[in-house]
Write a protein that binds this DNA or RNA. Structure first.
Lengths: 337, 337
DNA sequence: CAAATTACCGAAAGCGCTTTCGGGAAGAGG
DNA sequence: CCTCTTCCCGAAAGCGCTTTCGGTAATTTG
C-alpha cells in the first residue's frame, strides 16, 4: 500500500506537497497534483486513518452504545431498525460506526472511557434504560451525543410522539364503540412507557371515560411473557375490558396468546392494539393493529442532530419528536352489543 | 484527560518510563510503577487508541461487512443473531467492531479499501451473496478474515450443516408418513440454498422417494413473498405434495399464508417445515416446526477462527460446520389417510 | 526596468504513543 | 577492593500524516 513517503519518493516531491495534493490544497499546481494523484492510484495508496486522526483530531467515527438489556442487543426488533437507518444516514457523511467493547485489554472500562480512548467524534445511545449508570455518564460528558428513545434536558434527543400515539390508540378503540379500555403499560422508569401511560390517561379523560385502577397494569419491560401475564390479570377481573391498548408489540403478542388460551378470540371477544409496528406482527394471527413508530425517520433525525454537533465540534441540545401513525390491521373490531 | 507527557511531567519520570509502567514492562520498579499508575488514575488518563495503533500496527478493531441485500442490514432476522454473538465473543478479547461506510469524505471506496484505511486487524463478512464483487475482493485480500454462511476454499469459513439439516427435515416428514415431499428452495447461487437442495435430494434418494420435478421449486432469495408465490405454484399442481420442506423460515411464513388463502389448513391438510428458527415463528399460527441454526455457536466459532488469525498475524483457512437441530412445533402432522 | 504580487513548493514541528539500545547505580562474586 | 551482573531508567527514533511558515521563482504593475 505504501505511505505518503513512498509517494513523495516516487514523484520527487516533498511529503508536504503530496499531502497537500491529496487534500486539495490550492497552493499546488494542477500539473503536480495530477502526477501525484496518478502515482497514488498506481500504487493504490490509501491514507492511514490513525495517522490522520492523530494529526487532525478528527476520527470520523461514531461510538454506539446499544441496548444491552436481556442480552438482545442487535436482535432488538425495534432498535435494530433505528440503528440501521442511522447507519445509512451517517454513512453518507463519511462516518463509521464503532461498537465498543467494555474491555480494553483485560482492564474493563466504561463506555465513555472507551469512546474517549477511541477518540470518537460523537456518540449515539440507543437504549431505553435511563437509570443505567453508563448512559448517565455518557450524557454528562462533553462529547457530542444524541440519545434515542429517551428524554433529557441536557443533550440532544429523538423519540416518537408517545403520548400522541397512545391517544390515537385509545381514540381508535373508542370510535369502535369500546368504553372499557384497559392499558397494559411498560414500566414508568422507561420514558416511552411513562409517556404512553400519560397519553392513555389524557385520552380517557378527554373522552370522559373513567379509568378503573385494575385496568391499568404495569407489565414491566416490554417482553412477550410479561404481556401475557398482564393480560391474564385482566382476564381474571370481574369486569374485564372489551379492548386493551398494549404499550408494545411484543407484549401485545403475549396478550393475544393469553386471550387465546382463555378460549377467547381476538378481535371478536376482545380488541387489542399494540405499539411499535415491528416486523413480525404482520404474520401473527390476527395481524396486529398498532401504532407505528417510524424507525427510518428516527434514525435519520438522530443522525442529523449528531452530525450537526460533530461538524460544529460542540455539544448542543435539541429535541426532536417524530410523529407516529396508526396501522389498521385485524386485531380490533367494533364492540359486541 | 491528558497525554503521556502530562503524566511524565506530573510524576517526574520520562515518557519512556511512563509508557513502560502502563504496559507492564518489567524493567520498572514497583515503586515507580505504583506512582505512575496512581497519577494516571488521578488525572484519569486514557491512552489514545490512534497513537497506539500507529505505533504498534495493531488496531484492536474488526471490520464487519454485513449483508446489504434488500436494504435489511441489521434487521436481518437470522444474521443479526450471529453478529450479536460474534460481538460478545470478540469483545471479551478486547476487540471493537467497526461498521464501515463505503464513503470516505465524498470519494467512495470499496469495503476492502476502507478496511485497509482503518487498518483493522481482521474482517468478518456476514453475507450470503458469494458473487458480490466486494466480498470477492475481501476474500482475496491478505487480511485475516472469516466468512459466515458461505463456503470457500481459501479463507476461513463457518456455516451450519445445511445438507444434514435438509436431510433431517425430509426424514422427519417421512416418519410422519409423508411420501410426497416438496422443497421450496433458496437460489442455488447462495451456498446455503444449494446445500439444502442437495440434502433434500440425497434424503429423498436414500428413502427411495422419487422427486417430481415440479415439486422442487426455486423461490429465490428467502423472502416471505417469494415463499408465498412458490407455494402457490405447488398448490396449483394436479398432485400437490402433502408436505413441504421450505429452505427458510421467512419463506415458510409466506408458504403458510398461501395455504391459508387456498382455504387449506396447516398442518391438517399440508405439513410445512422451515429452516433457521428465527424469533418470530414461535408466534405465528401454527407455530412453525423448523431446523434450528445455532446463531450463538456460529458467531462464537467465527470469532474464534478470526481471533486465532489475528493473534498469529497471518491468514489461515479453516472450515467450521455447525450442527443443526430439529425443533418440533406445530406445523407438521402425520399424513392424512 | 525596479518593485510588488502571486504561485508554488518544502523544512520542520507536532499529534501521542512504543520500543530499542545504552548507560549509570547498585548488588553479587571473587 | 575490583569486576561482573542485575536492576532501573531515559534519549531518541519512528509510526504516517497535517499544517504553519518561509522562501524562491514567476508574474504583474506602474
Amino acid at each position: 500500500m505504501g505511505t505518503i513517503y513512498d509517494l513523495a519518493k516516487k514523484t520527487g516531491f516533498s511529503i508536504t506537497t503530496v499531502s497537500k495534493a491529496l487534500n486539495n490544497y490550492k497552493d499546488v499546481s494542477e500539473k503536480t497534483r495530477a502526477k501525484i494523484l496518478q502515482a497514488a492510484a498506481e500504487m493504490d495508496y490509501l491514507p492511514n486513518a490513525h495517522a490522520q486522526s492523530l494529526s487532525t483530531k478528527k476520527s470520523w467515527a461514531i461510538g454506539v452504545m446499544f441496548s444491552e438489556a436481556n442480552e438482545v442487543g442487535m436482535k432488538h426488533p425495534f432498535f435494530n431498525g433505528i440503528i440501521e437507518s442511522f447507519r445509512h444516514a451517517t454513512e453518507e457523511h463519511g462516518y463509521d460506526l464503532i461498537f465498543a467493547s467494555r474491555n480494553l485489554r483485560n482492564r474493563d472500562m466504561s463506555y465513555l472511557e472507551h469512546f474517549k480512548h477511541r477518540a470518537v467524534d460523537g456518540i449515539v445511545v440507543i437504549c431505553s434504560d435511563r437509570m443505567d449508570e453508563q448512559v448517565q455518564e455518557l450524557m454528562q460528558s462533553d462529547i457530542p451525543i444524541v440519545v434515542v428513545d429517551m428524554d433529557s434536558a441536557n443533550c440532544s434527543v429523538v423519540y416518537s410522539d408517545n403520548t400522541e400515539g397512545a391517544r390515537m390508540a385509545v381514540n381508535y378503540l373508542y370510535e369502535l364503540g369500546h368504553r372499557h379500555i384497559a392499558h397494559i403499560a411498560g414500566d414508568s422508569s422507561i420514558d416511552a412507557g411513562a409517556a404512553r401511560v400519560k397519553g392513555y390517561e389524557l385520552a380517557m379523560h378527554a373522552l370522559d371515560l373513567p379509568i378503573q385502577p385494575n385496568h391499568l397494569v404495569n407489565a414491566g419491560f416490554f417482553s412477550v411473557e410479561e404481556g401475557k401475564q398482564a393480560m391474564e390479570k385482566l382476564l381474571q377481573l370481574e369486569s374485564p375490558p372489551t379492548a386493551v391498548f398494549v404499550a408494545g408489540d411484543q407484549m401485545a403478542i403475549g396478550a393475544i396468546e393469553a386471550v387465546h388460551e382463555h378460549g377467547l378470540r381476538v378481535p371478536e371477544d376482545i380488541s387489542i392494539i399494540g405499539y411499535d409496528d415491528i416486523e413480525m406482527i404482520k404474520y401473527i394471527t390476527p395481524k396486529l393493529t398498532t401504532i407505528r413508530q417510524d424507525t427510518d425517520e428516527i434514525g435519520e433525525a438522530a443522525a442529523e442532530l449528531l452530525i450537526e454537533q460533530m461538524t460544529a465540534k460542540e455539544r448542543r441540545t435539541e429535541r426532536r419528536v417524530i410523529p407516529v401513525r396508526l396501522i389498521e390491521r385485524a386485531s380490533c373490531a367494533p364492540v359486541k352489543k
